[in-house]
């Protein structure tokens, strides 16, 4: 109960507005210092897409599903290396999110429909190799193209 009261006072006491805003600034600065660059910009893009409403494409496409967006971030969290370029982030007409890279003669697209659901497609124009697999818990198919793009 003590904690509840303290929290309530902090929001009604004018003097604490300053400390709250100072804390928010500190948190922002701290996050910027420790967060990889891709994380902030991809998150900003995903957030923008989450504001799209049903019909955003003019053809009744559903709004982007939160759990699809969250899982896309989880995938990136697991595969992005320090030197990996940021992906393009685009909404799909099925309520999912698509992460795309087109560089170093590699095309890689990850279409996330929901956690563990979707499709991974990549092609290597240098060798002609192409792969399409269902998105699941095993992300090993991403290892090679991500490595190639991160060199």
């Amino acid at each position: 109960m003590f904690r509840d009261n303290a929290a309530r006072n902090a929001t009604t006491d004018g003097s604490s507005d300053f400390s709250q805003s100072a804390f928010a600034k500190f948190r922002e600065a701290h996050s910027a210092a420790v967060q990889p660059k891709w994380q902030a910009s991809v998150l900003a893009k995903v957030t923008e897409l989450l504001n799209l409403r049903q019909g955003w494409d003019g053809y009744n496409a559903p709004a982007l599903k939160h759990d699809a967006a969250m899982f896309a971030m989880v995938i990136l969290q697991n595969v992005m290396k320090q030197s990996t370029p940021e992906p393009s982030v685009v909404p799909s007409s099925t309520g999912g999110v698509q992460l795309e890279w087109h560089l170093n003669r590699i095309d890689l697209e990850i279409h996330v429909l929901a956690p563990y659901q979707g499709e991974i497609w990549w092609t290597d124009h240098a060798t002609g190799a192409e792969s399409t697999v269902s998105l699941g818990k095993d992300l090993s198919v991403l290892d090679e193209p991500i490595k190639r793009m991160s060199l």
Partner: peptide, 16 residues
Amino acid sequence: PSFETFGTPPMAQQPS
């Protein structure tokens, strides 16, 4: 969210 995925090399933990 906490989702386990596999098949990628372990990396230094990135800030959540």
